[in-house]
Write a protein that binds this DNA or RNA. Structure first.
Ligand SMILES: [Mn+2]
Ligand SMILES: [Mn+2]
Ligand SMILES: [Zn+2]
Ligand SMILES: [Zn+2]
Lengths: 138, 138
DNA sequence: TCCTAATTGCAACTGAGCTGCATTTAGCAC
DNA sequence: GTGCTAAATGCAGCTCAGTTGCAATTAGGA
């Protein structure tokens, strides 16, 4: 369990309950963004069964604290990945098999200033996802 | 009613029914992406009431034919905008008031080759949206 | 150990979007 | 124009992700 996450939780007055701890461990051990249902399923298998609604509530809370990153791949459910120790990055998903791959790049950072000047918005974030066909499915 | 849309429909063996025509007119007159529910609401007001399920089915079909573009702003429902006569572009939405603005740019085109080389995927498309705070809300 | 705010689980709910099916309609052939 | 048929529609009921209300439980500081 990463120290910085524990600290953020404490600062925000959040308790480290057993369900929450189990959920965080699942999230941290997942290299790719996973859905609430997947978190739930893994917890059941691992004898740490917690309610699905608790999964949802915790994911929402962690997102609020900026500890997990929501990834909306427009293909079913929302997915989440922990932020800590991972560079800001984006994803590509295969239309055939659903395979998700991390893209270790972000072409948007440099663009933010331009968009802010153009729109007068204060930009808070962006979402960028690619879809395509993986080597097996193409 | 744009000619090229009618042509595409005909080619695909689709009929130009009254509900479909009314829906297309709403879509074409909307400068920004709108939701199925919004399309439905405007149709009701305009004395062209059609069923909401017909709206969904038509939007799905038009998307399949590549005539409308789905825009997932992760803030509620899916939105749609007609493609014809509009350059490929992206959007920014305000977290405060929900205002959506067209961004007449796409920084991704140049990147596609790089991502394809990196991942061996055949890239079919991408989604890019910004969130932030508009001048009124910031 | 005690206390209280935070958290949980359960059950019931919401809301977007989809499916099955009987009825209607566009558009083509005659 | 009439008749025909595949496409499309409306209705009702469904699915599935995610949320809400609430009583019972628990973490963790005093
Ligand atoms: Mn990732
Ligand atoms: Mn647009
Ligand atoms: Zn980025
Ligand atoms: Zn683009």
């Amino acid at each position: 369990m990463v120290e910085s996450i524990l600290e953020s939780l404490k600062t925000a007055g959040k308790k480290l309950t057993k369900p929450r701890k189990a959920l965080l461990e699942i999230l941290e051990s997942s290299p790719l963004p996973i859905t609430a249902a997947e978190v739930y399923a893994r917890l059941r298998k691992g004898r740490h069964a917690i309610d699905l609604v608790t999964v949802y509530r915790n994911l929402a809370m962690l997102q609020e604290l900026g500890l997990v990153n929501p990834v909306g791949l427009h293909e079913g459910q929302m997915r989440y990945e922990v932020c800590h120790g991972r560079e800001h990055h984006h994803h590509i998903q295969c239309r055939g098999c659903g395979l998700i791959v991390d893209l270790l790049l972000c072409p948007i950072k440099k663009l933010t200033d331009l968009v802010e000047r153009q729109t007068k918005f204060a930009i808070e974030g962006h979402a960028l996802e690619f879809v395509g066909w993986c080597p097996q499915c193409r």
